[in-house]
Structure formats: C-alpha cells, structure tokens
C-alpha cells in the first residue's frame, strides 16, 4: 500500500466520481497523523485508511470537525474476523464515514488482536456508535472502552459466545433458557 493512489483501471469502478479530491483527504490524513495513520490507499475506487487502534477517537474527531474532510456521518461500523484468512492480528474494526456536504466516503480500518479485543469507543464523537458498537460486541466479542452501556443488542442476555466469530459453529445449539421472573 502506498500513499499515492494507484492508477489502475480499477479506480474507475467506484460509484463515487469525485476522485480528484482523493489525494487531498488521504494525504491530509497522513501528514496530520504521521505514525498514527499506518497506510492509505484506494481500494476499488473507495478511499481507505488504516489507523492505529489507540488513536481512533482523535483521528475520527479530526475527520468529523475539519472543514476539508467534514465527515459528519458515521455511516457504518462493523468488524471482520480474519481467523480463516490467517490475519494477524485476528480482527479488524471497520468504519465507513460519509460527508453529506462534500459527498465523499472514507473507510477506516483498525486492527484488533485476539488477546486484547478492545477499541476506544466513539460514542462521544457520534452517538450512533452506541448501537453499532453494541452490535460488534454482541457478534464478535470486541469490547469498546468508554462505552456507557455495552450489552448485547440482537442476541439475548445469557447467550453464550459471539456468533459471527469464525470459530463459532453455524449449527451450534444454545442451551435452553427458562422464563425470567
């Protein structure tokens, strides 16, 4: 991965056509946070940045507030378990940001290890992160430090394990739970 966008024909595939803005946002990010932004690239027309776990809130706050980036919306937050791809560290959390004013998107990834599956929470930056982070905790068992109320959202209390982890068997039957009174 390099800081300059590769000029492959794949660049033209994305639905976003503002590719002239591309170097600006990504190079700005790199120069502003050298050492914290690990790499930037254009992936099938999507802008992508990989950042260090500890500096996620700081970088996100900058991306939200700076006039040149203006990512006011956290469109999506999710995670991927790389166990079967042999990723080291095992997980990565992926954020999709969108700017309504400048109409551009950015994908931010941060690696999370199996031994210490914890990422700083973004609830202070975007309130919607509350539910997204609860879902990631529910499905992957990745904790978000600083989250006010990190509990399961789609599964029930008392569910064992985290179903979207690759080592969770798809046909595993949970023990029955009785009614709670």
């Amino acid at each position: 991965m390099s800081s300059t966008p590769p000029s492959s024909p794949l660049d033209k595939l994305g639905a976003v056509s503002q590719s002239e803005l591309l170097p600006e946002v990504l190079t700005l990010l790199e120069s502003q946070f050298s050492g914290k932004v690990l790499s930037v690239c254009v992936n099938l027309g999507d802008w992508e940045a990989s950042v260090a776990k500890g500096s996620v809130p700081e970088i996100m706050r900058f991306l939200r507030d700076d006039k040149r980036t203006d990512f006011k919306m956290l469109a999506d937050l999710s995670a991927v378990d790389g166990l079967k791809m042999g990723l080291v560290p095992r997980f990565y959390v992926v954020y999709h940001l969108y700017s309504i004013k400048l109409k551009h998107r950015l994908r931010v990834k941060t690696n999370v290890s199996e031994e210490d599956p914890a990422v700083p929470s973004l609830v202070d930056v975007w309130p919607i992160a509350n539910w997204f982070e609860r879902e990631v905790w529910d499905m992957f068992g990745i904790r978000f430090t600083g989250h006010p109320d990190l509990k399961r959202i789609l599964m029930y209390e008392g569910f064992q394990g985290h179903p979207l982890r690759k080592d969770y068997p798809v046909n595993y039957r949970q023990p029955l739970i009785g009614p709670r009174n």
Partner: peptide, 14 residues
C-alpha cells in the same frame, strides 16, 4: 431489538 434475528450475516458465509 433483536426479536427477528435470523443470522443473516452468518448464513451468508455458509
């Protein structure tokens, strides 16, 4: 929420 969870994302991987 979660009462209609059908493991869509898990099933897609299968």
């Amino acid at each position: 929420i979660g009462y209609l969870h059908r493991a869509f994302e898990k099933m897609c991987e299968e």
